[in-house]
């Protein structure tokens, strides 16, 4: 149990160090700067119980039917407008009788999913918006491991210690003050934020 937890933490830390600075840069500067990756990097999150070499499923499994109904339009085709024309009339009658929940029409889930009556129309509206965006292929589903090529190359060139963590002379000297210390010598603000976030976690080595 402990060993597998450390393995997962180590893999996650390695991935976070590579990808999170780019996201920080986006939020800090506010400038969107997309980069093309010349290397086809395989990027996958390991499952909770598996080892580092386990195969990751392509989509997130949502056992809760509520989540499945919300994210269902991503897998299904564009909804035809006809089913929505008749269903609200039927369900509006049900809302007067039953206040606990309103059955939501779903194409992929067999059982009806009951939702808050106040949110019924909003959910239908969002479904159409997502289906429209999906049909126009405006939403890029695949996640890129990094945003900027130069930052990715810089991270690859940095020295790494046991377990794949970046080497940091200040952190090695003051491991006792790891939580409170701030690496001011680091010129990159994003990398500094990344290290601050990783400071509370225990080192695997």
């Amino acid at each position: 149990m402990t060993t597998s937890t450390r393995d997962i933490s180590d893999n996650e830390a390695d991935e976070q160090q590579q990808s999170e600075p780019q996201m920080q840069h986006l939020s800090a500067n506010g400038i969107s700067h997309a980069g093309i990756g010349t290397q086809n990097v395989q990027y996958a999150t390991p499952p909770q119980l598996g080892t580092g070499h386990a195969v990751v499923p392509p989509t997130y499994p949502y056992p809760d039917p509520y989540y499945r109904s919300i994210f269902a339009p991503y897998d299904a085709q564009t909804y035809p407008p006809q089913p929505y024309g008749g269903n609200p009339m039927v369900h509006l009658q049900l809302m007067g009788i039953q206040q606990a929940g309103v059955p939501l029409p779903t194409d992929t889930v067999e059982e009806p999913v009951f939702v808050n009556a106040k949110q019924y129309h909003g959910i239908l509206r969002r479904r159409q918006s997502r289906a429209k965006a999906e049909s126009e292929k405006k939403a890029a589903r695949n996640r890129k491991p990094y945003l900027h090529e130069s930052r990715h190359l810089h991270a690859l060139r940095r020295a790494r210690g046991c377990g794949g963590r970046f080497l940091n002379s200040k952190k090695d000297e003051n491991q006792q003050d790891e939580v409170a210390s701030t690496d001011e010598s680091q010129s990159n603000i994003n990398l500094n934020s990344d290290k601050n976030e990783l400071a509370p976690s225990d080192r695997t080595s």
């Binding site: 969107s32 292929k137 939403a139 890029a140």
Partner: peptide, 8 residues
């Protein structure tokens, strides 16, 4: 017109 991950 692709909505990128960092915009979505």
């Amino acid at each position: 017109g692709i909505i990128r991950e960092q915009d979505r």
